[in-house]
Computed example of a mutant assay.
Amino acid sequence: MIATLPRIWPSPHGKPLPPMGTAEVFRVFARDLAAGRRSWDVETARFVAILFDQLAAEWDTSRATGRDDPLRDALERGGPFPDGPCLEIGSGTGLFTPLLRGVFPCVISVDLSEQMLHQAAVRSLMRVRADAGGLPLADAQVAAVAAIDMLLFPAETARVLAPDGVVLWINQLGEDGPLHLPAAEVAAALPGDWSAVEADAGWGSWAVLRRGH
């Protein structure tokens, strides 16, 4: 079941739109990966790591085009949240880590890019270079998995999440974002039965997903 909340954060002018053709290519890749129609392999992971290593130094000033409205709204209206660590996958330079730390007792920042994690040092105390397609965590270890403009790895996300844990799925640019997946597709991709609450906020959208009971 997907419950949609009314918008309370307006969408400001000046939304930065990525190139339409490029964004659609990435959206197709994201949908196919989440649905299991495409595999994630070592070569793809290496390509992504190198790409974001090259972008890291200028990311905050010229590449980070989103706003934190969707995450703020999710944290304000998407609860209650279980007590325990939050795993932020694809954490990048840690722009959103302080917001997550305001809700969860600790945040573990995970990214493929060593340089992105280096830039995140002032924002994140716990940083791990790892592939979200094969996380170095035991089963059921985290209270939340936060994915902000990130590819969905359904099996690994569900594996590391505690039974009462939540998935925070944030799209900073909503449907225009290159990795956008609607909440219904995220819920369908995750193994088992899931429910979600979602809303639009600012330029983007968010969903908080929980396992069904």
Rank of each mutant, 00 (worst) to 15 (best):
M1L: 12
M1N: 13
I2P: 00
T4A: 13
R7W: 03
I8Y: 02
P10D: 10
P10V: 10
P10F: 15
P16R: 14
P18F: 09
P19R: 10
M20Q: 14
E24K: 09
F26C: 09
F29M: 03
R31I: 02
L33R: 15
A35Q: 14
A35R: 15
S39V: 05
V42W: 06
A45K: 06
R46E: 01
F47S: 08
A49Q: 06
F52G: 03
F52D: 12
A56N: 03
W59I: 15
D60K: 10
D60L: 05
D69W: 04
P82F: 11
L87F: 13
E88N: 14
E88K: 15
G90Q: 06
P105E: 11
I108T: 12
L112G: 02
L117R: 01
L117D: 06
Q119T: 13
V122S: 11
S124A: 15
S124V: 05
R127S: 06
V128K: 15
G134S: 14
L135E: 01
L137H: 08
L137E: 06
L137Q: 07
A138W: 04
D139I: 01
V145D: 00
A146D: 10
A147P: 08
I148K: 09
M150Q: 14
L151M: 04
P154G: 07
P154Q: 11
P154D: 13
V160F: 11
P163H: 11
P163G: 13
D164S: 13
D164W: 03
V167K: 03
L168D: 03
W169A: 11
Q172W: 06
Q172C: 13
L173P: 05
G174I: 11
E175R: 10
H180N: 11
P182C: 07
P182M: 04
A183S: 09
A184K: 05
V186W: 00
V186A: 06
A187Q: 09
P191W: 04
D193V: 14
D193N: 05
W194T: 05
A196Q: 07
W206G: 09
W206A: 11
W206I: 13
A207Y: 01
